[in-house]
């Protein structure tokens, strides 16, 4: 373990919607957090694989027992399939980073894995026992903490990590965040999808839509605030491709997360020591895939007006901010730390 030549550090962001890896060998990859197993012999024959991961799994979902293991930011306890899916995702990411898991001689892998704050709170031990074995040393951290560490925003900042399953808030006070410094909301990407699906079904009852379709629309066209143009999508109506206008529904669904996010910020910020409140208010950092929604950042910033206004910035690379933060932790950790975390 002490031979630095044979060590590979990796940072992994295990997200509800997407998972990313950044490795010290320069490899960076992102996959959709879906894992699927063929449902029967026929499916296995067609697919010619025993397990499918990422977009492959989504595309072939009709033939798969499909799992998104960190649904709502948590691994459902007792669900063997979900735990298997987490392990498969990790192995897949390691392979993408160039690690041959079967090889007898491979570098010692030290991994820092960032998970949604809620999973960190509830599933930490379970995740640890699930992920152990795949890597040589393992550290699990909460996603907002990893983002803060990677950006060196450890003091007087508020990290708002808006993911798919949850939105995690973490006030950084210059020490390792406690439970009191963190909040988790389910107002996040998935709740937008649910709202959008419901609205589209309500306003276009004849249209055939699925959650996968609305998720794609949200990711392509989602916005908060004034629309830049009409958003029209094509959906089957009794089998015939038909164009429908989803602008208003999309806006309503996307804006449904603004109020709870603002309310939580307004609740957390006054808890900061009074002399530092202005600093934190002006150092709010948005991360997570859902933070990329057009118009969301200014809408949230406007929400800070009742307490004197503030400044909200988005991380430059929302997709890899978590994984890069994890990698930074892995690189900074010393041998003695890793020796204590041997898996």
């Amino acid at each position: 373990m002490t031979d630095r030549q044979k060590v590979l550090n990796v940072g992994i962001d295990l997200g509800t919607s997407r998972s990313a890896i950044s490795a010290s060998n320069g490899q960076r990859h992102v996959v959709e957090s879906y894992v699927g197993w063929p449902v029967d012999m026929v499916a296995r024959k067609v697919l010619k694989r025993s397990v499918l991961i990422g977009s492959d799994a989504v595309e072939n979902r009709t033939m798969l027992d499909l799992h998104r293991p960190l649904e709502r930011g948590l691994v459902k306890e007792g669900s063997k399939k979900d735990l298997d899916a987490v392990r498969q995702l990790l192995n897949h990411l390691l392979e993408l980073a160039g690690i041959d898991l079967e090889a007898k001689k491979r570098p010692s892998v030290r991994a820092v894995v960032g998970v949604p704050a809620e999973a960190m709170r509830v599933n930490k031990q379970q995740l640890r026992s699930t992920l152990e074995g795949a890597v040589d040393s393992l550290m699990i951290v909460s996603e907002p903490f990893a983002v803060a560490y990677g950006l060196d925003a450890l003091l007087h900042s508020l990290i708002v990590d808006i993911g798919a399953g949850t939105s995690d808030f973490c006030i950084m006070r210059g020490h390792f965040p406690t439970e009191e410094d963190q909040r988790t909301l389910v107002a996040a990407g998935d709740s937008i999808d649910e709202n959008l699906l419901k609205l589209v079904q309500e306003h276009h009852p004849e249209a055939q839509v699925s959650v996968y379709m609305v998720r794609e629309w949200k990711e392509k066209h989602g916005f908060v605030g004034k629309p830049q143009g009409r958003v029209k999508v094509t959906v089957p109506v009794k089998g015939t491709p038909t164009e429908i206008d989803i602008t208003d529904d999309l806006r309503s669904a996307c804006e449904s997360i603004v109020e709870p996010l603002v309310e939580t910020m307004l609740d957390l910020l006054p808890r900061v020591d009074p002399e530092f409140q202005a600093k934190v208010r002006n150092n709010v950092i948005l991360s997570g895939g859902c933070s990329l929604l057009s118009g969301l950042r200014p809408a949230l910033q406007d929400g800070l007006d009742p307490i004197g206004g503030g400044n909200i910035q988005s991380v430059k690379d929302a997709v890899f901010a978590g994984a890069e933060g994890c990698l930074a932790i892995a690189l900074d950790a010393e041998d003695e730390d890793w020796d204590r975390l041997v898996s």
């Binding site: 930490k124 640890r128 699990i140 903490f145 560490y149 450890l154 020490h175 950790a333 204590r340």
Partner: peptide, 25 residues
Amino acid sequence: ANRRQRRHMLRAAVADNMAKPRDPR
């Protein structure tokens, strides 16, 4: 000071990983 802060947090993160589950669990 920054290095010390990061070091301090890393130690806390390691300790947190080694901590046993909370009592109710």
